[in-house]
Design a protein around this nucleic acid. Structure first.
Lengths: 158, 158
DNA sequence: ATAAATGCAAACTGTTTGCAGCTCC
DNA sequence: GGAGCTGCAAACAGTTTGCATTTAT
């Protein structure tokens, strides 16, 4: 399947003396198969459990580990609980997010619009940016007119 | 003291049929006296408790209420727990944050650098921005050289 | 007078931890 | 074989809720 990406993650694990267990693999596969989405820990728990029996502690331990290895990313803005997503390999920084306060849809924009500002931070503040998170909350023009529920409730806790 | 600002908040409360209790006032005063800072719920609890006996539930209930009235703002990015800060009255949007991963200092930049991008979102996505949150994590040049602890550990949970 | 707000304690929710047993290299 | 990993259950931390009492308008 995404064997190429999985291989590359495997080699990161190996380099640190870590093992690719079945549980870990199922978690990673799930996130790889849903690159543009983000999930809460318990969403991941429920989805992974459909594939293989797993404990919630294993979910948390693996998420923490994968964050440390920069394989996945934790997004904390304004969600009831943190959400996790796989890192884009070719992308230095995280993407930008649009959250519609009406329909609760979360759109990820993959371009980086902040180059200029980051240069300015380096110049004016001597601050070297390693990562950024940019979130806009607002309303789509469609949602301003109608009662917009097209995307459903995607942001429950579980 | 900040009577002008306090008055204006009082009138917002009145308009909604809400009361200015002593507890509520102490919370608001505390945040008004520390405009450029942000605090966790339990930090606020401890500071307010020095002034007046108060229960933690009252803290949470008031924080939620003040958020709804757009008097304070909840910041959730990457902190162990959410942090709260008073809204700038003359400022449409929240400020930008620099978080140094070495010294853990959090600097708030009060200018809005995103006007252009917000216009673009309106144009290209039909998305009307109501608020944004922009956080940069990185390292100050000072911190790259030395073991930088000048700001101390400001981000504990309590 | 009465709607709103409070304190307290219990309940809840998400996350972490200790430990005995299991699994991958 | 042994470090690393797992499941389980208990512990933990932050937050929310129900209720009897108090307070602001």
């Amino acid at each position: 399947m995404q064997s190429e990406e999985l291989e590359s993650i495997l080699s990161i694990l190996n380099k640190s003396g870590l093992k690719m267990t079945l549980e870990r693999e199922v978690i990673i596969r799930f996130l790889l198969e849903h690159k543009d989405e983000h999930f809460s820990a318990s969403e991941i728990f429920n989805r992974v459990r459909e594939i293989r029996r797993i404990g919630i502690a294993t979910i948390y331990r693996n998420l923490d580990l994968l964050i440390e290895l920069h394989i996945i990313k934790k997004m904390t803005h304004d969600f009831p609980v943190p959400r996790y997503t796989i890192c884009e390999r070719d992308q230095k920084h995280g993407s930008h997010m649009l959250i519609c306060t009406r329909c609760k849809d979360v759109k990820l924009i993959k371009e980086d619009w902040l180059m200029e500002i980051e240069e300015r931070l380096q110049r004016e503040f001597g601050f070297k940016v390693m990562d950024h998170q940019l979130v806009f909350s607002g309303i789509y023009s469609d949602c301003q007119k109608e009662s917009c529920r097209i995307h459903g409730d995607r942001l429950t806790n579980r």
